[in-house]
């Protein structure tokens, strides 16, 4: 196993003050910066032939997913494995929940197996917070209902920072189903903290109440919203919201809020195009743009693994027997 040379981050330094990572709202600007700096080192590591580190050797990392997920779950799994943790995947959809077991029962059962890190995704807002109160290890929120998805916001920030060298002062347009999006909430929290200007673009049925009070600008016209933007972040519109409940049809949504070349040209030249995936091509984003020169969608996936390694590393330092702990005890 190789350790990265010239790793600028001291491996015993404490990065996060809390035991868990539940929401961007809970963490500070220095914590975000430190996580992104640490993630940079993992980007380099992941591009080497030998990608393995021993930081989490002996640690048990469980992915507890109550909602189906391909990319987030495999990203966390790979991150854990590259840091030498024993990774177990639990898709709860197919097991105990169908037998009437509650979220906490499942969590307590797993807790009895002494996991060090529990990565949880659940359809209810606040589920990660509830788990964190009851388990002894570290909890990472991998998406709770319509609340937050902190590692997504961190990987988006890393992607932007690597290209544009900063976050402060950037104009970032987030477009689509804001109301139901945990990705949007985490990104709003992170980008505002880091001093970016955040614009939300959506029809009024897809905007949550009083969202402007968070400190964002709200646009119903995509043309106005993307004008001069450094980054255009598209969100996924769930199929079930397109049947007349929130928007009348996919084609009407595409007409007004789909990202096309024409609309993209209103943004800054070379503006970054991002999407958390999975995409609905031809609904919220045109295929030629998704696969085009300005698209950073594949980059986001790459940054995802690095950011999750950084989060796992940072939280492991705070665990009993972790580096930050040893230092504190010595």
């Amino acid at each position: 196993m190789t350790d990265i040379k010239n790793n600028t981050t001291n491996t015993s330094r404490q990065i996060l003050s809390g035991r868990h990572l539940l929401a961007i709202e809970d963490i500070s600007i220095p914590e975000i910066t430190a996580l992104l700096d640490l993630a940079e080192t993992y980007v380099e590591l992941n591009r080497q032939v030998e990608k393995k580190q021993s930081i989490l050797r002996g640690r048990t990392h469980i992915n507890l997913f109550f909602e189906a997920s391909t990319r987030t779950q495999s990203s966390f799994e790979l991150a854990g494995k590259r840091l030498s943790a024993d990774v177990m995947n639990m898709s709860v959809k197919s097991s105990s929940v169908s037998k009437g077991e509650t979220l906490l029962d499942t969590a307590m059962t797993l807790n009895a197996m002494h996991p060090d890190i529990l990565v949880v995704r659940h359809h209810a807002s606040g589920a990660a917070e509830l788990l964190a109160q009851k388990v002894s290890g570290a909890v990472i929120n991998a998406g709770d209902g319509q609340h937050e998805h902190p590692t997504q916001a961190l990987l988006d920030a890393l992607t932007i920072r690597r290209k544009l060298k900063k976050l402060e002062g950037l104009v970032i347009a987030i477009c689509g189903d804001i109301k139901h999006s945990r990705v949007a909430r985490s990104n709003i929290n992170l980008l505002l903290k880091m001093g970016a200007e955040v614009r939300l673009i959506a029809p009024l049925t897809l905007l949550p109440a009083d969202v402007e009070r968070l400190g964002v600008q709200v646009f119903t016209s995509m043309e106005e919203g993307v004008r001069g933007a450094d980054v255009v972040m598209m969100l996924r519109l769930q199929l079930e919201r397109m049947d007349g409940a929130y928007v009348p049809s996919a084609r009407e949504f595409y007409h007004f809020y789909g990202l096309t070349q024409k609309k993209l040209e209103l943004a800054k030249e070379d503006a970054m195009v991002m999407h958390p995936g999975p995409m609905n091509r031809g609904v919220e984003i045109d295929s030629t743009i998704a696969d085009g020169m300005q698209s950073y969608i594949q980059k986001q996936v790459e940054m995802g693994v690095a950011v999750r390694m950084a989060v796992l590393d940072a939280l492991a330092r705070n665990l009993p027997g972790g580096n930050a702990n040893n230092e504190a005890n010595s």
Partner: peptide, 15 residues
């Protein structure tokens, strides 16, 4: 209650 707090918590609101 519908409003900023519900929006922050990601919970559906009642106006």
């Amino acid at each position: 209650n519908e409003g900023e707090t519900a929006t922050r918590l990601g919970l559906p609101g009642i106006p």
